[in-house]
Design a protein around this nucleic acid. Structure first.
Length: 587
RNA sequence: GGUCCCGUAGCUCAGUCGGAUAGAGCACCAGAUUCCUAAUCUGGGGGUCGCGUGUUCGAAUCACGCCGGGAUCACCA
């Protein structure tokens, strides 16, 4: 239940009445009418902009129209007060029992609080990570991985049918390099002295087991053989091993994909999917042979104007048309990506999201142009960019370089601080802002650490509900009683109302976060909710009658237990979206 | 030079279908514990929302132009 949309529906009823009375000429602008929490609590519970939005078509002064709306609103049984303020805002105060319904809604087990139907079951494809299968995941992949996974959960919570997908770049030159590197390790496993790994090959030890496996499986079959004889076989074995490793790395962060899509599969068959996609685009007249103008500004040294196969990306908002074929005639990465996204579209995804690193920002326009072109505007693609993460330890940057061997893997980070900390911190910042990750700070047990702060709130609630209340009221069985059995009208303290109002925000926050594809909004909300709880807790220090447990008042304790239980489930719900395990106790 | 992102308190950052007097944390200052975990909380000072123009009842938010920082720029992935 979303209290604000509930009252907006009531308001629309009022506006309909005014329409019938002829006060309003039509309902054209009703979509622009909003019911929102006011920034300033002295402005009541909800602020309505209807009079300002509709004044012009009604040919009335905003405040005069507001007067008419107000009169009808006051007749609603859930509205206590309605006042006109400022340029024509209508501020309403709703009945306490309306607020108390929020607690009931938050505890309703039949319909988890905050879930939304806004997605209407539409299919969404969230593609993320898609790291090259050439080695273990490093820390740079963390953020995109966590972000994509949380975004997928968020959209699912908001009513979409979500698929998490990983695009395996198993067709480019880099997997050939992988194969050569693995071949070297294979020779090593056969007892050959290989010395230093040559420049340009992957030096990591993680390929040693692959070499061993190859040696076990194929003996010396590929020893001294031409590359063409072993490249494919070894490449396939190596890629499979790398993907297995990547899947394990992701599992350490509690990330699992629904679908893995192989780039190479696009190149199989005759005609293959890439050729088909290009043919389709060509039929639409979007492909031509031509020469691109050289880049503006400084000319690259090796600039070589030549005719190539181009996609008319400029027809769809890109800055320049884009090449689909390389000099040697093979397809570009972009051509494969068009075919890939075209395939998503054919699989029924009208909503696609790509999560990429900041260095791919320049790729967004052409990809959006492509999607627009082949779907003829039916599909939409949103590309989310994740900015860099700076690793710090005690405020000092952690130096990383692949050469010196000090580069940090995703696994190392997760093993040191745990998946929950990694996930929450990565999500506690807008995706397109860079982020500092300080190993010391994120493990600190203090309010400076948002992960801890939120977890502590959840643990406090758990402690009260399942340790302290049973001590005080042994006959009170929390798991059996429900919000209807308790008298929520006893929740009248301003701090308690503040908590309820914060709870009421949750469905709004979920929808806003889902609409903007910004899971960090959930993290910030949880922080605010936790802060409100800690505040109310501490008010009980000065005023004992405000404590959640009043040993001489069973009814009041019961009502408050329902309130904090509602907060606890909402904290757990939000943490669930972020993929963070709520803790019942702090160690 | 083109494109994209960023510019909000001393620092790190929230704040987009445009809403009223712009928020939080850190840091700084002053306080709270016979009590469900003080692992927390309360109060205070601190701002030309980079600059300018425009759109309108109303702009941190939208449009255009500047300034500053970052990323990226045929063919690689």
């Amino acid at each position: 239940m979303n209290l604000y949309t509930h009252f907006r529906t009531r308001l629309l009823g009022v506006l309909e009445t005014l329409l019938e009375q002829g006060v309003l000429p039509n309902g054209d602008l009703f979509d622009a009418v909003s019911v929102e929490p006011p920034r300033d609590p002295s402005h009541g519970d909800m602020a309505i902009n209807a009079a300002m939005v509709l004044a012009k078509p009604a040919k009335m002064k905003p405040r005069d129209l507001a007067q008419k709306i107000t009169e009808l609103l006051l007749a609603e049984d859930e509205v206590d007060k309605a006042e006109i303020a400022g340029p024509g805002f209508i501020n309403i105060t709703i009945t306490p029992s309306s607020w108390h319904k929020v607690v009931e809604a938050a505890l309703d087990e039949k319909r988890p609080y905050g879930v939304s139907t806004m997605g209407q079951g539409q299919k969404v494809n969230v593609e993320f990570v898609s790291a090259n299968p050439t080695g273990p995941m490093h820390v740079g992949h963390c953020r995109g991985a966590v972000f994509g996974d949380a975004l997928a959960s968020l959209l699912s919570f908001a009513g979409y049918d979500v698929t998490r997908e990983y695009y395996i770049n198993d067709a480019g030159a880099q997997v050939d390099v992988l194969a050569r590197s693995a071949h070297l390790r294979y020779l090593e496993a056969l007892g050959e002295e290989i010395g230093d790994i040559p420049e340009g090959l992957y030096p990591g030890d993680y390929l040693k087991p692959v070499g061993q496996k190859l040696a076990d499986q194929y003996g010396d079959q590929f020893k001294g053989a031409e590359e063409s004889e072993w490249l494919e076989t070894i490449r396939d074995v190596a890629i499979e091993a790398m993907m297995e490793m990547i899947r394990e790395d992701l599992a350490a962060l509690n990330i699992r994909f629904d679908s893995f899509f192989s780039e190479r599969s696009l190149k199989q068959g005759d005609p293959n999917l890439i050729a088909q996609a290009i043919a389709e685009m060509r039929e639409k007249g979007l492909i031509y042979e031509g020469t691109l103008p050289p880049p503006k500004g400084k000319l690259p040294d090796d600039w070589d104007p030549r005719e190539q196969t181009l996609f008319k990306a400029t027809n769809f908002g890109d800055d320049v048309d884009r090449a689909l074929a390389k000099a040697d005639g093979s397809h570009t990465y972009f051509a494969a990506d068009i075919a890939y996204h075209g395939d998503k579209f054919k699989r029924g995804f009208n909503h696609m999201i790509d999560v990429m690193g900041a260095d791919h920002a320049g790729y967004i326009k052409r990809m959006k142009a492509a999607v627009k072109a082949f779907s003829e505007g039916e599909a939409e693609l949103d590309v989310k960019i994740c900015q860099l993460v700076r690793l710090l330890r005690g405020g000092k940057p952690v130096k990383m370089s692949k050469r010196s061997g000090t580069f940090i893997t995703l696994r190392e980070v997760v093993e040191e601080v745990g998946p929950d900390v990694v996930r929450f911190i990565m999500l506690h910042r807008k995706n397109d802002a860079s982020l500092d990750f300080d190993f010391d700070k994120v493990q600190e047990q203090s309010k400076d650490n948002p992960v801890f702060y939120v977890q502590y709130a959840h643990a406090r609630i758990h402690s009260v509900l399942y340790r302290k209340i049973p001590d005080a009221f042994p006959q009170m069985e929390l798991n059996k009683i429900n919000s209807q059995a308790e008298d929520l009208s006893l929740l009248t303290d301003e701090g308690e109302l503040a908590l309820i109002k914060r709870l009421a925000q949750y469905p709004r926050i979920v929808e806003q976060a889902a609409k903007t594809h910004e899971p960090h909004r959930i993290a910030f909300y949880l922080y605010d909710l936790a802060a409100d709880l800690h505040t109310q807790w501490n008010r009980g220090i000065e005023k004992p009658d405000l404590r959640f447990i009043n040993t001489d008042n069973r009814k009041l304790t019961g009502a408050r237990a329902m309130l904090i239980k509602a907060i606890g489930t909402t904290l757990a719900s939000g943490l669930g979206i972020l993929g963070v395990e709520p803790l019942n106790e702090m160690r």
